[in-house]
Design a protein around this nucleic acid. Structure first.
Length: 631
DNA sequence: CTCACTACTTAGGAGATGCGCG
DNA sequence: CGCGCATCTCCTAAGTAGTGAG
């Protein structure tokens, strides 16, 4: 193994660029906020002070919020310095392996075989996944078997030569039963388990940052297991090793209580770096990259960064027209590099594509973003479905999620793409002269803090704002307004290509809906026939009674048709949402102040939009946005 | 420029929990 | 008051983007 490199020299990060302008902007926002009528806000946050000035004792949550750290009302730290005090208990380690009971056996070539502890543990990783699709994949099997054999004793290596002869079924059953037994536990037992978990959370799940108790995001080390990559990952099935204290670097403040490593163990290193936000880190053995223990999204460190992200996106709003004019001009640039950059930027802006850094081949699944698109990922149609200059994009993006889109583009773009593809193989880079670094250098020059990803944030947020404006009807009731909100949110999710796998129960509930539709259709048909009959009768008799009957039947038909239409809309809605995930954009791309302003403007309770966790994450925005907020 | 390394955000799936309904 | 589905929480993989050495 080459994964262990102890005693390497560590470097400190240098300070980041100045952001004075931004700070000023924030100061202004604050003052603006404080002028708004309603609750008066305090300058300083209270720390455990039992002041009770909130006479109109509202909900508990609000009382709780009273104790929360209103960091956004404080002065910002010197650039690059993330904290002055950081104290925590270190990570909570995954429990050690518990050997299987004697009667749960592993079989090789039909015969029971007692495994060494390590070998058995790894066998359980595979056994647990037996009914997962992963274990049917050859790469997964090969990687697993290779890594497993490496950990076996020489006797075991001698015997266990083929994965196909391994029988894990008893082990598998053991874990299935175990999990079922857990589910069937009586209430009080479950309660006890929960209390234990809460205690761990209480002890390890928080840290002290600059005098405030802050929630940690992931305070547990990742347990050992088999690596589960996404998509066609070349490393799927490889053994992810157990993290020991000896692998872990602790970061905290010098004068804090240094966390104790578990009994009989030592930390790899303890450092006191206040220019970073992480509390602990280790190197994982699959990709040889660092993993970190960091704070929860509700924390100051994360919240401030999030806020800053949206402020950068808002600054883009002011210059985006110039930038667009600039890249359109660059479509004609004499420099091929600049032309490629201009076309790529157009895609990033128009289609909200990711930047697309280069990746090491064979290390990860074959996915691309904008700058790493290959010729094989696009098709050019001079005309298609009545449109001119259509580009068909089809590629796997982040998490191996497919991006498929047919989009009409400007003639210049189309011509450029033809040029970029000329004399190239399908597997060649479309933008062969372009890297994300080059693109971002250019963007930085156009606007301070601008990078490719800002376009996604900007376009997502501005789309939400525009869609909300277009779709919300103030006459609607709350449910109707929420529907509009979800539609606006969905427009963003579609733009950003946020997908989910089709819910397991989808087909079933769709079927129920379809049955309803079919029944309704039949009713409509019947009503049509009856109407026809009534009309025929009227033809014959021409009396008032028959005429009234025709009217009645017409009315009925109309109502049924409307009901059918509504069901169809519902089905379309459901179908459209089938593979769309709204959560990612809500959490990462939509400036929360847009949603909060909308809630205030239309009298929709914020809880209808954001659940508790989300409200904690966006506490800064809830505190500062009023109904006039404009992104 | 490339490469190695670092630090951070963004992402979908699995499993846990909660909630409305009969 | 349990059951089945929807929502929430947790987990950790997979991106973006920066730095600095050579």
């Amino acid at each position: 193994g080459k994964g262990d490199g102890p005693g390497k020299e560590k470097k400190r990060k240098s300070k980041k660029k100045k952001l004075e302008g931004e700070e000023q902007e924030k100061e202004e926002k604050k003052r603006e906020e404080e002028e708004t009528p309603g609750k008066s806000r305090k300058r300083k946050s209270k720390e455990g002070g039992g002041e009770k000035d909130n006479k109109k004792a509202r909900k508990e949550e609000e009382k709780e919020a009273e104790n929360k750290w209103k960091w956004w009302e404080e002065e910002k730290k010197e650039d690059g310095v993330k904290w002055t005090q950081l104290e925590h208990r270190g990570p909570y380690f995954a429990p050690l392996y518990e050997p299987l009971p004697e009667d749960v056996r592993f079989y090789y070539a039909g015969k029971p075989l007692k495994l060494s502890l390590t070998t058995e543990e790894i066998a359980t990783f595979y056994a647990k996944m037996l009914d997962h699709e992963y274990t049917t994949k050859e790469i997964f099997q090969n990687n697993f078997f290779h890594d497993w054999r490496k950990e076996m004793t020489s006797e075991e290596q001698e015997i266990i030569q083929e994965l196909a002869k391994c029988d894990f079924s008893e082990i598998h059953k053991y874990f299935v039963d175990k999990s079922e037994a857990r589910k069937a536990l009586p209430k009080e037992e479950k309660q006890k388990l929960k209390e234990e978990a809460d205690k761990i959370q209480e002890e390890y799940g928080y840290c002290i940052l600059d005098g405030h108790r802050e929630k940690i995001g992931n305070f547990k080390t990742e347990p050992p297991g088999l690596f589960r990559g996404r998509g066609d990952h070349p490393k799927m099935g490889m053994l992810k090793k157990r993290i020991m204290p000896e692998d872990v670097i602790i970061n905290c403040s010098r004068d804090s209580k240094i966390p104790e490593p578990p009994e009989g163990h030592k930390w790899k290193e303890v450092r006191f770096d206040n220019t970073v936000t992480w509390l602990a880190s280790w190197t994982e053995n699959i990709q040889n990259t660092l993993k970190y223990i960091m704070l929860n999204p509700s924390s100051k460190l994360k919240g401030e960064k999030d806020w800053q992200k949206y402020e950068v996106a808002r600054r883009l709003k002011d210059v985006v027209h110039e930038i667009r004019a600039r890249y359109r001009a660059d479509w004609k640039s004499k420099e091929m590099k600049n032309r490629q950059r201009a076309v790529a930027l157009y895609f990033i802006d128009k289609l909200a594509l990711r930047a697309g850094n280069e990746k090491e081949e064979g290390e990860t699944a074959d996915t691309v973003g904008c700058c790493s698109l290959r010729v094989e990922h696009i098709r050019l149609h001079p005309r298609l479905d009545g449109q001119e200059h259509v580009v068909e994009l089809d590629f796997l993006g982040k998490d191996s999620i497919r991006y498929y889109n047919k989009v009409a583009v400007e003639k210049q773009v189309f011509k450029n793409l033809q040029l970029f593809m000329k004399n190239k193989d399908p597997s060649d880079d479309l933008f062969d002269r372009l890297t994300t670094t080059f693109l971002n250098k250019h963007l930085q020059h156009l606007m301070d803090g601008l990078t490719a990803k800002v376009f996604r944030t900007y376009n997502a947020s501005i789309t939400l704002q525009e869609q909300l404006k277009a779709l919300t009807n103030s006459e609607d009731n709350v449910a109707g307004k929420l529907l509009s909100y979800n539609r606006a949110n969905r427009a963003v999710a579609v733009l950003c290509n946020h997908q989910r796998s089709v819910p397991k129960t989808f087909a079933k509930s769709m079927e129920i809906l379809q049955t309803k539709i079919d029944a309704k259709k039949k009713q409509v048909e019947e009503a049509q026939q009856e109407l026809k009959k009534a009309e025929d009768e009227l033809e014959d008799s021409k009396d008032a009674k028959a005429e009234a009957n025709v009217k009645k039947k017409k009315k009925l038909l109309k109502r049924l048709e409307e009901q059918l239409a509504r069901l169809n809309v519902q089905a379309t809605d459901k179908e459209e949402n089938k593979q769309i995930a709204l959560g990612t954009s809500k959490l990462n791309y939509l400036d929360p102040r847009i949603s909060i302003a909308w809630c205030k403007k239309f009298g929709v309770p914020i809880e209808k939009i954001y659940n508790k966790t989300q409200r904690e994450k966006f506490a800064w925005a809830i505190a500062m946005a009023n109904e006039d907020f404009e992104f």
